[in-house]
Simulated scan of single mutants.
Amino acid sequence: MPSIQKPQRVRRVPRALPSRFKRQRVLIIGCGDVGQRTARLWRPMERRISMELPGGAQSISADVPDLIAEKGAQPHHRLPLVRALTSSPEKCAALRAQGILPLQGNLDDAASLRRLAGLAQRVVHLAPPAAIASTEGETVASVLDQRTRHLLRALVRRANSAPALVYGSTSGVYGDWQGAWVDEARPLRATTARALRRVDAESQLRGWALRFQDSGARVHVLRIPGIYAGDREGGTPVARLLRGTPALRAEDDVFTSHIHADDLARAVALALWRGKPQRATNVADDSALRMGDYFDLAADLWQLPRPPRISRAEAAQQLSPVLLSFMSESRRVANRRMKTELGLKLRYPTVQQGLAAAFQLSKDLPKK
C-alpha cells in the first residue's frame, strides 16, 4: 500500500563558495598618496587608465585588472574590497569617494586598533614611524617604531589566522655604500634615527611573521628610495629649485635612486600576491644619477636656473641637518629582484622619462 506519510523535507545546507569566488579583503595602513594610488588599481570603474607617454601627446591604455591578474599575481577574479585605517575623521568622505571604506583608528593609540584582528586577509602597511622629539638629542626610544608594534599586536588579537602583509620600508636602511650598487643581500648600515626606526620595524615584522607563520602570517618588505610624480604633493624638485637651495659639487656629490609613485603602487599591489614570505625587495627604477644631476635635469625641463654647487664643507654651514643627512649617503639601488620575482615592468624606467611626464602634466594643468 502507498504510504500516507508526508515526504520529509530535506533541509538544504548552503554550500560555501569556491575560493576563486570569494572576495579578498585588503586593509591599507597609512593610506596617503601611494596607498590611494594602489587602491585605485582595484577600482572597477577605472579598469582602464589612460596615461600620457613621456615623450609626447600620444596616450596608451593599461587594463588595470590584467596588471594585478598576471599569472601568479591575483588568484581571485574579483577585485578586492579595500579598507583603510585613518586617524582623521575629515578624510573619511574623501576615502569613500575613492571606493575605500574608512576605519577610524590611530597607530599611536593601541586601544583604537582592537577591531583590526581578522578584518582582512592582506594588509598594506605604509605608515611611517613616529618621530620622537628630544631636547637632549636622539634617545633609545627614538629609534623604535611603536606604531608597527601596536599594529602587529592588533592584527592577531582574537583571530585564528594572521594576514599576509606588505611593508613599505626605505632604502635608507642600507646606509652609506660610497656609490656602490646595493642589492637585498647587503648588510644594513643605517645610522640616522629616521632609518633606524625602519630597521626596527623590519625586525619586528620578521619576528611576527615567524611567530605566527602557522596561522598564515607572511611579510614582504619593499625598500623604497625617493618617490616622485608630477601629481604628487612635493613630487618634483621644482619648489627646491625656486628656493635656490644649493647642491653638492660633482666631486662631493652622492648617488641617489628614485621610483615613480605609479610604479611603486603597482609594486605594492603585486607584492601582496607575488611577494615571497619573509623577504625584502628593492623598488627602484633603472637610473643611476647623482643628486645634483637630478636637480639639473629638472631645472632644464622647467627652464629654471640650475642649483648652485657648493663643497661639502660649505653645505655643512648652509644646509639643515636633515638635508645634510640625505647628502651623507651614496648608493645605487639594484632592482633585479623587483623585476624577476614581482614581475614589475616599469612604466617610467628612468627619472628622465618620469620627470618629462611630470613636466608635460604641469603644462596641461589649468593655470591658477
Rank of each mutant, 00 (worst) to 15 (best):
S3K: 09
P7N: 10
R9D: 15
R9I: 12
V10F: 03
P14L: 08
A16S: 05
L17G: 09
F21H: 11
I29F: 07
G32H: 11
D33V: 07
V34Y: 09
M45I: 09
R47Q: 14
R47K: 15
S50W: 11
P54F: 07
S59V: 13
L67V: 14
L67P: 01
I68G: 04
G72C: 14
P75V: 07
H76S: 14
L79Q: 05
L81Y: 06
L85S: 05
S87G: 11
P89K: 00
P89N: 04
A93D: 06
A97P: 00
A97H: 08
Q98D: 12
Q104Y: 08
N106A: 10
D108F: 02
D109C: 06
A110E: 13
A111Q: 13
S112N: 10
V123I: 10
H125L: 09
A131Y: 14
I132S: 04
A133T: 04
T139R: 07
L151Q: 11
S161K: 15
A164G: 12
V166K: 00
V173K: 03
Y174H: 10
Y174M: 11
G175F: 11
W177N: 05
G179R: 11
E184Q: 04
A185D: 15
A185N: 15
T191S: 14
V199A: 03
V199I: 03
D200N: 06
E202C: 03
L205D: 00
L205V: 06
R206G: 04
W208H: 03
F212A: 12
H220G: 03
H220C: 14
H220L: 10
L222W: 03
R223F: 13
I224T: 01
P225V: 07
P225A: 02
G226L: 15
A229C: 11
A229E: 02
D231R: 12
R232N: 08
E233M: 08
E233Y: 10
E233C: 13
G234K: 09
T236W: 00
P237S: 08
P237W: 06
P237N: 14
R243P: 00
A247H: 03
D252P: 02
V254A: 03
L264H: 14
R266P: 01
A269I: 05
L270I: 10
W273A: 06
G275E: 10
G275L: 06
G275C: 06
G275F: 04
P277D: 13
Q278R: 15
A299Q: 08
A299G: 11
D300M: 03
L304P: 03
L304S: 07
P308W: 06
R309T: 00
S311L: 14
E314N: 12
A315L: 04
A316L: 12
Q318G: 08
V322Q: 14
R331H: 07
R331D: 01
R332S: 04
A334E: 06
R337L: 06
R337M: 02
M338T: 00
G343A: 05
T350W: 04
Q352N: 07
G354Y: 04
G354I: 09
L355K: 05
F359V: 04
K363F: 01
D364T: 13
K367A: 15
